[in-house]
Amino acid sequence: MSVEAIADAFRRSVGAQVELHAEGHHRYQVLTPFRYNDGDHLGVVLKQVAGRWQLTDEGSTLMRLSYDLDLADLQKGTRAVIIDGALDEYGLTAEDGVLSTTVEGDDFGNALYSFIQGLQRISAVKLLSRERVASTFGDDFRAALADWFDPSQWEERWHDPERDADGRYAVDYRLLVGSRPVFLFTLGNDTQARDATIALHQFERWHLGVPSVVVFADQATIARPVLARLSDVCDKQFSSLGGNEDRIPEYLRRLAA
């Protein structure tokens, strides 16, 4: 198949997946093959405003983002930089929460192409919302621990009083299961994971011989190299608290057996 034929096949295939569905006077719902992870297609409307054709999301993009984010968070930090960059790069305007672009002349194809890329780039700021998980994880874990074990059995922010008076190598929880101590680390990001790795290496040097258990807020958010180094020195990992509320205490109690 020639390159020209391949290019033509691409054009016909992609082009055939774009449809216009009339919804009243000079207003069309634009169907494209581009979907969110939940199967909903990008909300794109083509309509005439003051005699000019405009592509608009009618506010649907930010409305979707508001399921997971406070929209006030989009006006600061990394998210604001990403959104402003997308608006500028793809020629979109944002007015009262509505994203739009005006079609110049008959350049409908490029206008649609740029509009969709802009919507997708802006929608991607949702992926930055994971930091919200870490903000409640510590409290949730402490509450769970209190359900599993009497508070007299554990000590928070433990460090070795003789070897480490300054607390440079701290453990989130030192738990006594029966008469056996266990070190518990609750990790929400790469920095915490690195600190835990350093502490566990130090405990190896001191020959403490205490089993270590790590519970992540979300293991998938930890960088692979960081996770790999931690895996070499900790005894057991749980990828999250949610879904492991029975496994974690069961494992900890087995350590005392």
């Binding site: 719902q29 909903d40 909300g43 649907s60 998980v133 999250s240």
Partner: peptide, 18 residues
């Protein structure tokens, strides 16, 4: 507990294809 908010059921309008 300890997890993220999950959407169990979502009742959508008629404004986009699915």
């Amino acid at each position: 507990r300890g997890g993220v908010w999950l959407r169990l059921r979502r009742y959508n309008g008629r404004s986009h294809f699915h």
